[in-house]
């Protein structure tokens, strides 16, 4: 059960108030008629399914009824940021890679972290990065 910060309500609310709406930043092609069947099919049907950072659109359905975006880690389930419709994420795969590097450099052998299947809200970036490292 996620605890999600609504950027419009400006507070954390329970997941039950929200509906997930799939991958974020899928723009409708400006000129659909100029799209090939294949391009239109991609827009309609094909979505990413990454292990790691994922930008998702959610709706605060029982609340302010606004759509907004979440950057979520699909392994730890940590929500790294939420932002309004029309805004761009500040956390991306590059961000994670950077953190990973830092974490690897400072990592000692005694630290053991999850190999997967965990959720880690608020988990340290180092832990998250190591998760990412474990899959590489």
């Amino acid at each position: 059960m996620f605890h999600i910060y609504c950027p419009y309500c400006e507070e954390h609310r329970e997941e039950e108030e929200f509906h997930p709406k799939g991958q974020a930043h899928i723009a409708r092609p400006e000129d659909p008629d100029a799209c090939s069947d294949e391009a239109w099919g991609d827009y309609l049907f094909f979505r990413d399914n990454p292990r790691g950072i994922h930008h998702e659109m959610w709706l605060h359905a029982v609340g302010c009824r606004k759509f907004f975006n979440i950057t979520r880690h699909t392994v730890s389930y940590e929500i790294l940021e939420t932002y309004k419709m029309g805004e761009q994420p500040t956390v991306g795969a590059e961000h994670l890679a950077r953190e990973e590097k830092t974490a690897r450099e400072g990592k000692t052998d005694s630290v053991q972290v999850a190999e997967g299947g965990q959720q880690a809200v608020g988990a340290s970036d180092a832990a998250l990065a190591s998760v990412k490292g474990a899959q590489a």
Binding site: C9, R13, E14, E17, V62, G63, C64
Partner: peptide, 10 residues
């Protein structure tokens, strides 16, 4: 004042 869930309705 908030809009939220109440049992199985809003």
């Amino acid at each position: 004042g908030v809009t939220t869930l109440f049992a199985k309705t809003s």
